[in-house]
Computed example of a mutant assay.
Amino acid sequence: MPTEDSYGQGVDIAALTDAPNAATLAFNIADAIAQRSVMRFSSASARNATLTAPVAGMMAALSTEKLLTWYDGSSWAVIGSGTSAWTNVPLASGFTHNGNGNGSMQYRVVNLFGEPTVMLQGALNVTYSGSNIANGGIVTSTPLPSSARPGSLRTVVIPCSDVSSVRITLKLDAQPDGHLKIYGTGTGADGTSKPPWIGFNGVFYSL
């Protein structure tokens, strides 16, 4: 009868009294070791189709999503992500990159505390028609890809110039349709806010 490995990890080791069977010997070791190593799959759907009854502690790398996942006993959680290149946000008319010399407005998807999150950087130059911000405040000319769209509206605070503005912060809505919209410019009870540049360094929103 096979005995368990010395570390108690459920790897069956054939005993000398067992009937010789090279295939059984190989499978007992290979199958046990594989599920205790970092398994590799093309995608989350491929992982789920193969591991229909995962157990706590299993790890799987997903090549399409570029994620390292871990089964915590109830669901798969992300514990690491691959490299994600910065990508310029496609801008609508009335907005240009490199506001206040902060570089182009860019985004990338990162892993933050096990959750896919969009990170922003850079700044925009902004034009106005009277007191109205261009394009109703929607800075994106085309939607961000589905991988960078939140499941529901995400509202975050963003900085802006205090020149020509009674405010030094505005509001950014990351919309589920993939567009980014700025709020807080124009004329209000407290005065007029027409900042010539709006920044995004250090801004995150969860997906």
Rank of each mutant, 00 (worst) to 15 (best):
I29C: 04
G80F: 04
W197G: 02
V78A: 13
N125M: 06
F204K: 12
N88E: 11
A46I: 09
S206G: 04
L172I: 04
R154E: 06
R149N: 08
S6H: 12
L153S: 12
L25V: 11
A134P: 14
G184M: 02
L207C: 01
A32I: 02
L170T: 05
F41W: 08
S84N: 10
A77P: 00
N48A: 14
N88R: 05
Y128K: 09
V126I: 07
F95Q: 06
R40M: 12
G82N: 10
M105D: 03
G73Y: 13
D12C: 07
V89G: 01
K171G: 09
I138L: 07
D162L: 06
P20G: 09
F204W: 13
R149G: 00
G73A: 14
A26Y: 10
L207I: 13
I198D: 07
Y183W: 14
I182T: 02
G151I: 08
L170V: 05
I168Y: 12
D12A: 15
S161V: 05
A44Y: 11
G178K: 02
A26H: 07
G8D: 15
V78S: 10
A34N: 11
N111Q: 12
N21G: 06
P195F: 02
A61S: 11
I158W: 00
I182E: 00
S193R: 01
A134K: 14
D72E: 06
S161F: 02
K181P: 02
A30W: 03
V110T: 15
S75L: 05
T83R: 08
A23H: 06
A174C: 13
G73C: 15
L25Q: 10
G101Y: 03
N111R: 10
T140P: 00
P150E: 10
N201F: 03
T187Q: 13
S93D: 13
T140S: 04
N111D: 15
S165V: 11
V38C: 07
G130S: 09
W86V: 06
D12F: 08
T50G: 01
H179N: 14
V89Q: 05
L25D: 11
D12G: 07
A30G: 02
I13T: 09
G57R: 07
N102W: 03
L120A: 00
L68M: 08
G114K: 03
F95R: 06
N21D: 15
A134H: 12
I13D: 02
R40E: 11
G103D: 12
A14M: 10
A85E: 14
A92C: 04
N102C: 07
N135Q: 13
N28S: 14
G151W: 07
L170Y: 04
L153F: 10
A61Q: 13
L172V: 05
V156H: 03
G114A: 08
P196G: 02
S6T: 15
T140W: 00
A46V: 11
N102S: 12
I29A: 12
V78Q: 03
G199M: 03
G8Q: 14
Q9V: 10
A32H: 05
N88I: 03
S43E: 05
T142A: 15
S129V: 14
G137N: 09
P20I: 13
I33H: 01
D31R: 06
T83A: 14
A61T: 10
T155P: 00
T169A: 05
K66Y: 00
G101K: 11
I182S: 00
T83I: 09
V109C: 01
G199N: 01
F113D: 09
